[in-house]
């Protein structure tokens, strides 16, 4: 199955205006957005789709507080779409929507969509670091910090994390029916998985939880590098949003991370510099915990200038 990655996540919420403001502040670009919701794109066109909770065009909600209504994957071509329709149509309803996409459900009840993907090709550079021992990555006189640059924008929808009531059943569905590969695993918690057409360490991570928690734990867009993760996160803090975890760097996947609370009732993350893997990779396994989930963790604080003359005394 040549599934190439996440194309969009669909949320149904009570507070469209708050969620829209949040996604714009996060850095996504609104496209055809109005009071009923709309599309919020990363630079490559992968997106968060926002709608009212009672929008009749959405698949039914999970029987929990989750606001995630559908996970849409991009596939390489029409033949892959047909193959998915044939495979999943063996034991569940698969609908062809008017836009040419497929809609169905996974074995846990998460609504799924599939469409032939048309991500815009990105032609940016990654964050370039000069370092002794290697040829310079930035041209001479090119600056690493540009205080006049606009806020960094999320580039591409990276991954979604599910709370699931039966992680073994869920992993089997994505592996056996859709050809996902498990890249690493937290023991008794769940697998990091990538679809066959994507080298990212994970586009899907699943966490075993009680049934009443089923839903979305977080979603993430890729940034251009660690500086962009930190700069974008610091901007969110300045805008009054609540940091939840980070900034730091994960071990499985090696991605830099910074998570924020959100009006979606799940976390929203920035990530950067995730590992790529292919069929040669052998999945690791570790007990989940603070030591295994990050190599370091920091916490934002206000800017500070501990140098120069002593501060003027106030009378």
């Amino acid at each position: 199955m040549n599934i190439v990655g996440l194309d969009a996540l669909v949320f149904g919420v009570d507070d469209v205006a708050d969620c829209a403001r949040y996604l714009i502040d996060y850095g996504l670009t609104p496209v055809d957005v109005g009071p009923e919701g709309g599309r919020f794109e990363g630079l490559d066109g992968t997106a968060i789709l926002l709608a009212r909770r009672d929008d009749p065009s959405l698949p039914p909600p999970l029987p929990t507080a989750s606001t995630l209504r559908k996970t849409i994957y991009g596939v390489a071509d029409a033949a892959t779409l047909d193959a998915i329709a044939a495979e999943l149509g063996r034991d569940r309803a698969v609908r062809w929507l008017a836009d040419g996409s497929l809609e169905t459900v996974d074995d846990l009840g998460f609504a799924l969509g599939f469409r032939v993907t048309t991500p815009r090709p990105l032609s940016f550079t990654a964050e370039a670091a000069n370092a002794p021992g290697v040829s310079a990555q930035r041209p001479v006189n090119a600056l690493g910090v540009d205080t006049n640059a606009p806020p960094p924008k999320p580039r591409s929808l990276s991954h979604v994390v599910y709370f699931v009531p039966d992680v073994a059943k869920a992993e089997a569905f994505y592996a056996d029916r859709l050809g996902f590969v498990t890249t690493d695993r937290f023991t008794k918690v769940g697998p990091f998985m990538r679809p066959a057409g994507c080298r990212d360490h994970h586009t899907l991570f699943m966490i075993q939880t009680p049934p009443f928690l089923q839903g979305c734990e977080h979603f993430t867009f890729h940034m251009g590098g660690p500086t962009e993760v930190l700069a974008a996160g610091r901007r969110m803090v300045e805008l009054g949003y609540q940091s939840f975890w980070g900034p730091g760097r994960h071990i499985f996947g090696s991605n830099w991370f910074w998570y924020f609370n959100s009006p979606f009732g799940c976390h929203v993350e920035y990530d950067a510099d995730m590992d790529h893997h292919d069929a040669e990779w052998v999945a690791r396994e570790a007990e989940a915990g603070a030591d295994s989930s990050q190599v370091f963790l920091f916490q934002a604080r206000e800017l500070w200038f501990p140098s120069g003359p002593p501060p003027a005394k106030t009378a």
């Binding site: 805008l239 949003y241 609540q242």
Partner: peptide, 9 residues
């Protein structure tokens, strides 16, 4: 775990 989604939210 902090609870608000933004200051006072």
């Amino acid at each position: 775990a902090p609870m608000a989604w933004r200051k006072d939210g």
